[in-house]
C-alpha cells in the first residue's frame, strides 16, 4: 500500500522504534481506542508536542485566553426566529494546534463555522483572524485570507474530474480572470505548476488513481478526502473541517486522521467538528465543547471528557452521539438485555 509514501515535512519525533512517519494501521482497519492506548499510535511530531506544551498552562474554563491565538471570537450571536443557535461569549483558537469542537447535535457547531467563514451573518459579534476583523467579510474573501473550510455534507463538484476539482482550489489564477481567460499563453505556466501541486496532494491522499474520474463517481470517504485535498490547494493557514469523518469507511478514517495530524506538522492550525470521541481524543490538542449555542467547557481532551458539565451537555441534549465506544456498547448491552427479558416473558406466557 503506502510503501512509497513521502512525507516531506514530517520528521518522527523521538527515535521510538517503528515510529516512522508513515506507519499505517495494520491491514484490518481497526478503530483507534485512544482511551487505554491499546493500538500503538505513531509518535507525536514536534509541532504536536509544541502545541500541547503551549496549551499546558491554559486555564480549563470556557473562553480561556490562549498564548498565541490565531482566531478570536467575541459575543457572536445568531438567532433563527426565536431559536438562538449560537451565542458564543468569547473563544480563542491556538495557532498551530488541532482544536476539536464537540457538542451534541443541534449545539450550533455548524452554524458557528458558517458564521466564522462568512457563509452566514451573525446578529451580533466580532471575530478576528490573525488580528484582522472578519465581521461582514464575504466568504470568498475569508478563504483568500487563509481560512478555508469544508462542509458537513460533502461538496464534491460531481461533474468535474478529480484533477479539475483540485485545480479549482488554487488561488490567484490569472486564467480565472475573464480578460485573460481566452489567451492560454497567459495562464498555461501557472496552470502547470498548480497541476503539479495538485498531483502531489492527490498522491498524498491516495487519490492519484482517480485523477481523471468524475468526482461524482467517488465513494463518500474519497469525496471527503478530495474536499480536504482541494481545500489545501488554497494554501490555508487555518483549516476548518466540519465532521471530516462522518460517513467515511472505517478503512479510510485512519489515513484521514494521519492527514489531519500532518496539517499541524506543516504549520497549519486545524479546527474540526467531530462526534467520534476516540478520534477527538487521538488527534486534538484542545477541545471546545458547545451546547445550546454556547461554549460550556474547554480543555485538553481527557480533562474535558471527564468534566461533568460536558457529560451533562450530552445527556441533556439529544443523546445521539455516544461519548465513548464503551458507552455505546453499554447502552447496546442494556438494550439487548431488555429485549431478552421481554422475549422471555412472551415465551413464558
Amino acid at each position: 500500500m503506502p510503501a512509497d509514501e513521502t512525507r516531506p515535512t514530517t520528521t518522527p519525533g523521538g527515535a521510538s522504534p517503528g515510529g516512522g512517519g508513515s506507519h499505517p494501521a495494520p491491514a484490518p482497519p481497526e478503530r483507534l481506542d485512544g482511551a487505554d492506548g491499546a493500538t500503538p499510535a505513531p509518535a507525536p511530531g514536534p509541532r504536536a508536542l509544541a502545541a500541547r506544551a503551549a496549551l499546558r498552562d491554559v486555564p480549563r474554563v470556557p473562553g480561556a485566553p490562549k498564548p498565541d491565538p490565531v482566531l478570536v471570537a467575541d459575543g457572536v450571536v445568531r438567532r433563527f426566529g426565536g431559536l438562538t443557535a449560537v451565542d458564543v461569549a468569547h473563544v480563542e483558537i491556538q495557532r498551530g494546534a488541532i482544536t476539536a469542537l464537540i457538542g451534541p447535535n443541534g449545539a450550533g457547531k455548524t452554524t458557528f463555522f458558517n458564521l466564522l467563514t462568512g457563509f452566514d451573518r451573525p446578529d451580533e459579534g466580532t471575530w478576528t483572524f490573525e488580528g484582522r476583523s472578519l465581521a461582514r467579510v464575504p466568504a470568498h474573501r475569508v478563504a483568500r485570507r487563509g481560512m478555508v473550510r469544508t462542509f458537513q455534507l460533502t461538496k464534491a463538484l460531481s461533474r468535474l474530474t478529480v484533477i479539475e476539482n483540485m485545480r479549482l482550489g488554487a488561488t490567484g489564477q490569472v486564467g480565472e480572470r475573464l480578460a485573460s481567460a481566452m489567451f492560454g499563453w497567459l495562464w498555461r505556466g501557472q496552470e502547470e505548476s498548480n497541476t503539479r501541486r495538485a498531483d502531489e496532494l492527490l498522491r498524498r491522499f491516495k487519490l492519484d488513481a482517480k485523477r481523471e474520474d468524475f468526482a461524482g463517481s467517488l465513494s463518500g470517504g474519497q469525496r471527503k478526502l478530495l474536499e480536504m485535498a482541494r481545500a489545501l490547494m488554497t494554501e490555508p493557514r487555518l483549516v476548518m473541517l466540519d465532521e471530516p469523518m462522518a460517513g467515511v469507511n472505517p478503512a479510510l478514517t485512519q489515513s484521514l486522521l494521519e492527514h489531519v495530524k500532518d496539517l499541524r506538522e506543516q504549520g497549519m492550525t486545524v479546527m474540526f467538528v467531530e462526534h467520534d470521541m476516540d478520534m477527538v481524543r487521538d488527534i486534538s490538542d484542545w477541545v471546545v465543547v458547545m451546547a445550546q449555542g454556547a461554549v460550556v467547557a474547554e480543555g485538553p481532551p481527557d480533562a474535558v471528557m471527564a468534566d461533568p458539565a460536558v457529560i451533562d451537555a450530552y445527556l441533556g441534549g439529544h443523546h445521539d452521539a455516544p461519548l465513548t465506544e464503551e458507552g455505546e456498547e453499554e447502552q447496546l448491552a442494556a438494550a439487548e438485555a431488555e429485549l431478552e427479558r421481554e422475549h422471555d416473558r412472551e415465551v413464558g406466557r
Partner: peptide, 19 residues
C-alpha cells in the same frame, strides 16, 4: 480556461466554489 472551470464549479455547487 480556468475561468470556465470556475463557472462549471458554480453549476455544481456554488458554496464549494465560494469556500
Amino acid at each position: 480556461s480556468p475561468w470556465g472551470r470556475v463557472l462549471k464549479g458554480i453549476r455544481e455547487d456554488e458554496d464549494a466554489v465560494r469556500s
